[in-house]
């Protein structure tokens, strides 16, 4: 299934490279950001205040993305679509597939956990490059597990939940020795265990908690960005420990039709397995 997804998106990507499609090109290259794990426009782990595409106030845009995270004991893939309208509203959909290790699968009789995420974001203020204060957006991510057996077995209270967030993002032109700096800070109210893959709420906590998420990046050239991200996580389940996530990323944006990201992610302890580290790969192709 995963192989099929990869192929589909790769073929899509090649198509985008080969065909001169008129994409929304209203913004400076690299200022549209990337596709986040849950489908929102952002960094890799963190939703940003920027919307998914290169659309300006006079344009709309749509994209396809595919992300694959391969860590010590698990695999996670996320594929989806996002659209944004007039640099004001973003709508997104992502399907996440969390591949479990065989040892755990035998006990639980579930090979993978699937989750659907519907996202919406509204830009409240500013332009990430030009406004005096950072661009500011609010958003939500509504998530639903296909099957709640693992979540229930671990003590989660719910198989669906909605995260709410407020994000601020700013690009500082020539800020670090002449290079452009981008930063983002997001505050997220959530009940999700491991992004919701292990359900929502639990014996240790069943209410919303505010989690902080941060991204920093440096534009080394018009096409290359390096940076890091941090995502704070709650600890609702007493059966399994949950750690904060970090990553170091490099993104390549050859043009406004496509971008690629590779990251080294450290997800700490995930569902009883310690030191979950590995490679995060992501690709976004803009349809128009």
């Amino acid at each position: 299934m995963r192989g099929k997804h990869i192929k589909t998106v790769m073929v899509g990507g090649i198509f985008l490279c080969a065909t001169p499609i008129m994409a929304a090109e209203g913004k400076l290259l690299a200022t549209a950001g990337l596709s986040q794990l849950e489908g929102s426009g952002g960094g890799g782990l963190v939703p940003w205040a920027t919307l998914a595409g290169y659309d300006s106030r006079d344009e709309t845009t749509a994209l396809l993305f595919m992300t694959d995270v391969n860590i010590t004991d698990y695999r996670l893939s996320s594929i989806g679509v996002a659209t944004s309208f007039y640099d004001r509203v973003e709508l997104s959909y992502a399907q996440q597939t969390f591949g479990l290790p065989v040892g755990l699968v035998k006990q639980l009789s579930v090979g993978e956990i699937k989750q659907n995420v519907i996202g919406a974001k509204v830009r409240l203020y500013g332009d990430v490059v030009y406004s005096t204060y950072p661009q500011l957006s609010i958003g939500l991510q509504h998530k639903q597990l296909d099957d709640d057996s693992v979540a229930t077995a671990l003590g989660a209270k719910d198989d669906s939940g909605t995260d709410f967030y407020v994000a601020a993002t700013k690009v500082h032109l020539g800020a670090v020795a002449g290079y452009n700096l981008v930063w983002n800070v997001t505050a997220r109210a959530t009940k999700a265990n491991e992004m919701g893959l292990l359900g929502y709420g639990g014996p240790d906590n069943n209410g919303y908690q505010m989690m902080m998420e941060v991204s920093v990046g440096l534009l080394l050239s018009p096409n290359w960005v390096v940076g890091m991200e941090y995502r704070q996580k709650p600890n609702n389940l007493s059966s399994v420990k949950e750690d904060d996530w970090t990553d170091l990323f490099v993104s390549y944006m050859p043009n406004k039709n496509i971008n690629f990201t590779a990251a080294y992610a450290d997800l700490g302890t995930v569902a009883t397995q310690k030191d979950q580290k590995g490679v995060y790969l992501s690709m976004t192709g803009y349809l128009w």
Partner: peptide, 20 residues
């Protein structure tokens, strides 16, 4: 978790100093 936070904050401070 604390280590991650420290790393993140350190990274931020380095970049912020670079800005300042």
């Amino acid at each position: 978790m604390v280590n991650h936070l420290k790393t993140a904050l350190l990274m931020m401070s380095v970049l912020l100093v670079a800005c300042a």
